[in-house]
Amino acid sequence: MNMTKKMQDAFNAQIAAEMWSSNLYLQMAFWFRKEGWKGFSSWMFKQSEEERQHAMDMAQFVLRRGGEVCLTAIEAVKTSWADAKEAFVDTLAHEQNVTGLINRLADVADEEKDRASQNFIAKYIDEQVEEERNVQDILDSFAHLSSHAVAHIDSHLAQRQ
């Protein structure tokens, strides 16, 4: 079954959003590394790669369904933050925005009565719950630890597999 043009366009918009997310987290990784936070940098590099993989997964799905993937220009991302906590505050806000984008993608699949897309998108809906929780847990660590303990958070994040 081929997907409708409306569904294809919605996926292409989400692919662009995933690539923007990848760039945002890559920039955060570079910034953290410049600031000397190896663990935070490592966590963000992995996050960037995960977002790029989401874009690739969605692109492959569109192609399997007979659709066309159309890459577009990606806007520049923010390049610096006041401190590590601010970067994670921005990360949570971004993940909450992505949740909204994924929900809108699911709405299009519902409107188009596209069960294959509905099924495919469901994993991303579930993943967004996990993404928001993970970032909130990091922010909770900032709230519960003294400013001198930020290095502990950094060390913990370096262990991400």
Rank of each mutant, 00 (worst) to 15 (best):
S22L: 07
S22V: 03
M19F: 10
A29Y: 10
M19R: 14
S42Q: 09
M19V: 15
W31E: 08
F30M: 13
S42A: 12
S21E: 04
K46Q: 07
F32V: 08
G39I: 05
W43H: 15
S48C: 12
E49V: 06
R33E: 14
L24V: 05
L26N: 13
A16S: 15
A17F: 12
M28C: 04
A17K: 11
A29N: 04
E49H: 14
L26R: 09
G39C: 05
E49Y: 02
S48D: 09
K38A: 11
G36S: 03
G36D: 09
N23I: 02
M44W: 10
G39A: 02
E18I: 13
W31A: 04
S22K: 12
L24K: 01
A17W: 01
E49M: 08
F45P: 01
N23S: 13
E18W: 05
K46T: 04
F32G: 02
Q27Y: 03
L26T: 02
Y25F: 12
G39R: 04
G39E: 05
W37T: 00
A16D: 09
S48G: 13
N23E: 04
Y25Q: 10
S41E: 04
R33H: 10
W20D: 01
M28S: 03
A29D: 10
M44Y: 10
L26C: 05
S22P: 10
F40V: 07
W37N: 01
A16E: 12
K34E: 14
Q27T: 11
A29F: 15
